[in-house]
Write a protein that binds this DNA or RNA. Structure first.
Lengths: 196, 196, 196, 196
DNA sequence: GGCTAAGCGAGACGGTACGTCTAGTCTTCTT
DNA sequence: AAGAAGACTAGACGTACCGTCTCGCTTAGCC
């Protein structure tokens, strides 16, 4: 058993994940985690420097952060709305966690970096596919920068969460898609920007 | 002295503001605030329901949240970059505070609302002026939705802060302006969206 | 309430005293004391540097350390046995506490001094009276050094506790009185030693 | 190597003995013993039931508990002082250990018995010789109960350690010999008590 | 000009989480 | 097959912080 037992680690991460959703970040105590995982606090602190580090690890390793893949709705505008909807879904899940952690993140840049590395939907293929479908339909989707489109969509969602708060309703989704993303994609298609 | 002494209130807000920048939100304790303000904790809790409320009050009343007014650079693209630069400046100041508070904001929607009411640059006249100048120059700035433009710009800045972190460098500013905001304004000018 | 509230102090000392006899020194935890006294651990640690200091205080202030006064049995030998019996009674009560503390006392001489100051039966008048009674009966009790007699008696009792252990039976009491204390008192009476 | 290796046992006892004098009983941890003896904790716990048992074993087997034999000083009074001096020497060495153990001894009578079996100077021949020498010199040493004399002397020394604390100075030695032991021996010689 | 009401500084209090430490058990790998 | 290495459970310890409360003192406003 000399190397840190992965079974125990798993149990601790599981317990943390459960409690995280049951109580939220700051009402969840390390003692509770230990009790639920039938682990000793020493076992927890042998692995993680503290509660925030543990939770970041949970987020990175056991939390499903990938947005669901946007479905084909038959039109570019519809697909963009669908994209925003998917991002909303994920962001609302992440939001609580990140907000709970953020007071720590501010004074712990190393931790912040670790978390950020796992935040974005690494998988851009959904957005890519959306643009390809649009192009195939003859819609003005060519040359759009996939990553930038995803970033702008994500930015709109998070901005809304921070400045207006949940819930993210359908009106917001449609506005974001129709008034920002769609015009933007069209603009890129017509006068492409030099890719950076 | 029967009504709550405004002098004491001021001293407490000042002390809080100082400590907030010296230590950050969560390493700052109420006892420290009391000591620095030569006030009793009772005096603090007679006015504010708790530490988060106090800090929100600091932000609302003693924290200069208004973005500096973007200057005229002679071109729409330049003005947009200038706008983003101004937003960056403000956002970086706000960022730390909001992140420190956010674990509380999640479970205290009332507080969140209070804070949000003071977050946005209420003053959109700078953005308005920017668009007017563009229009006067014959640039494609007509019919752009002032509030929406400001929101998108702000969204880009905050997204960057959350997902990449400070500092907000010049490359980011230029990209945001040239690759997103400028195409967007042009798109709006050419095929205006129905205002919501 | 500014000065440390004596009511709380009392409650804590009481709770400690109770738990001390219920569980013994080392199975008693500070958390238990706090819970029983309906006090916070902070309140305890504000007053005492730690568990040993608290217990020493209990012993000094709330523990009745005085031996019962030996009764008149009608003879010097009987009175001496009675004295030993009284000392046994007290010592057996003290024994557990001192033994529980002693691992700390070894490495904390300051604490040891505090405890020692409260250990001896300060009241020697019982022993004094015993000797006077003997003298009045014409028994050889003159000139005996009261303090020294008490010390020898006490030494015999503690030696027995340490080297043989409880319980202190009647045979021991009689032997101590008849074979040591009585001969000693007689010897002092016949050829008094120069008092030191 | 199949039978529990006596070499390892020896190493563990040695390490314990060293640490015992370096740090005292309660600041010495089992992990430290293991590390110093280059042994595993399992190896320790395979042989001894716990830390107290181990230490008792050290005391019984590797600790020289016997008082040095009192030398002939040419007079009974001098010999008695010499006896007390020898007891002091041993007691001061034992004192720390016993005090460190005592919190355990209280709640573990079996262990207490094991320790007690090794505590007294089993070898009474030194005391016996002392009395014989006195008798041969014509001093009043006849019929004295060797074991009881040793016990009283020992009692005086331990009482002093407990109630006044180390160090045991020369004044104490002389007083104990001249004011208690010598009168007592003389009294026994003149009116012998029936041996119990 | 006293009386009352309330704010005030000071700081103890209950509660609770944190992170550290130790004792004693158990597992895995090495020799 | 015994031993070294060291991870494990359990739980006590002492610290820090929050928000409440109680003291006296001082001040303001009203009779």
């Amino acid at each position: 058993m000399a190397p840190l037992d992965p079974v125990r680690e798993r149990a601790i991460l599981d317990a943390t994940l459960e409690l995280l959703s049951e109580m939220g970040y700051d009402r969840m105590s390390v003692d509770q985690i230990a009790k639920r995982a039938r682990a000793s606090k020493a076992t927890i602190y042998r692995r993680w420097a503290g509660k925030p580090e543990l939770v970041v690890d949970v987020i990175c390793n056991r939390f499903d952060m990938d947005a669901p893949r946007p479905r084909d709705t038959g039109s570019l505008r519809g697909d963009l709305a669908e994209l925003v909807r998917c991002l909303c879904e994920t962001a609302e899940r992440k939001h609580t966690l990140i907000m709970g952690l953020s007071s720590t993140l501010v004074s712990n840049q190393e931790l912040a970096r670790a978390l950020r590395a796992h935040l974005p939907s690494r998988d851009l293929s959904g957005v890519e596919a959306l643009l390809v479908r649009g192009e195939n339909r003859g819609e003005p989707a060519r040359r759009a920068d996939t990553a930038r489109l995803a970033a702008v969509a994500e930015a709109l969602v998070w901005h809304r969460l921070i400045f207006v708060g949940p819930p993210l309703d359908d009106a917001f989704v449609v506005e974001a898609a129709d008034d920002v993303l769609f015009p933007l994609v069209r603009a890129w298609a017509e006068r492409p920007v030099e890719q950076s």
